[in-house]
């Protein structure tokens, strides 16, 4: 446990000292500024547009960090050969993987909190009603980040950073289209297509379960039992990916 904390803290520190994160925060600010501007140019729908743009920005930036920092969590350590001295210390490979993951998860959580605070401040400034469902949507976004980070980490344990990014991005997009996969399987006359689509439906994460942004923007309350089950689903999926990543990483040579 102690080793995981040490690795996690160091990963978090690395992310903090990495200027890319600060740039992304600036980007978030600009995007939110733009949402106000766009909102000002529209009639009636101003509240919705500001909330929609804000949540979408937070989501987009979080996913970008999760993918592009996530794929480098392990591969950078191997490439820079820092892994030699770390794994020569009394730490298991799964502890290392978990530590790196937790480190990025903390970074994402801190980023999310900061961006959400800016977002809420923007809403308050523009006199848009702040509802609990916005917080719930942000919490589910965090779960989505955890799934995406675990996916990036999983792929990076056995493929190149570029391929890992492509695969993670692909899975992220499919993850938002799983209901279409199911519909396609049901409508398809080909047995092969049906089998492939059904397999993809069950294998890929259903990230739409974690997307309640539309509901949050509309101000429709979200049931807490849904919040709980969607969170549990996301965490379970991330855990499975992490277990897979640890298993593959265990067998790797450096």
């Amino acid at each position: 446990m102690r080793s995981i904390v040490v690795i996690a803290f160091n990963t978090f520190r690395e992310n903090l000292r990495d200027k890319i994160l600060y740039n992304l925060l600036i980007f978030a600010g600009l995007l939110m500024g733009a949402s106000i501007l766009i909102g000002a140019l529209t009639i009636d729908e101003q509240d919705k547009i500001i909330a929609d743009m804000g949540l979408a920005s937070i989501n987009l930036i979080g996913v970008i960090i999760a993918i592009f920092v996530g794929i480098g969590l392990v591969s950078k350590e191997i490439e820079r050969r820092t892994i030699y001295t770390i794994l020569a210390k009394p730490i298991s490979r799964s502890q290392f993987i978990l530590g790196k993951y937790v480190g990025l998860a903390i970074t994402l959580a801190v980023n999310l909190v900061i961006m959400f605070a800016v977002f809420v401040f923007t809403l308050w400034m523009t006199q848009v009603t702040i509802t609990m469902v916005l917080v719930q949507a942000a919490a589910l976004m965090m779960v989505e980040f955890l799934v995406v980070t675990a996916t990036a980490l999983f792929f990076s344990t056995f493929s190149t950073p570029t391929l890992s990014a492509a695969l993670t991005l692909g899975l992220y997009l499919i993850g938002h289209l799983t209901s279409d996969l199911k519909a396609l399987a049901e409508k398809s006359s080909s047995e092969v297509t049906k089998a492939v689509m059904t397999a993809l439906y069950y294998l890929c994460p259903n990230l739409e379960l974690l997307n309640v942004k539309g509901q949050a923007v509309s101000g429709v309350p979200l049931d807490w039992s849904y919040q709980f089950s969607a969170t549990l689903y996301g965490l379970l999926y991330a855990s499975l990916l992490l277990a897979g990543a640890a298993t593959i990483f265990q067998r790797r040579d450096f």
Binding site: V6, I7, R81
Partner: peptide, 25 residues
Amino acid sequence: FLPEAPYFYTYLTAEEVLLFYGRLA
């Protein structure tokens, strides 16, 4: 263990890197 031509986290100071490895140990 000292690897050949060792690489470390360049964003850490000498003191921080030793604290890091010490904690790991």
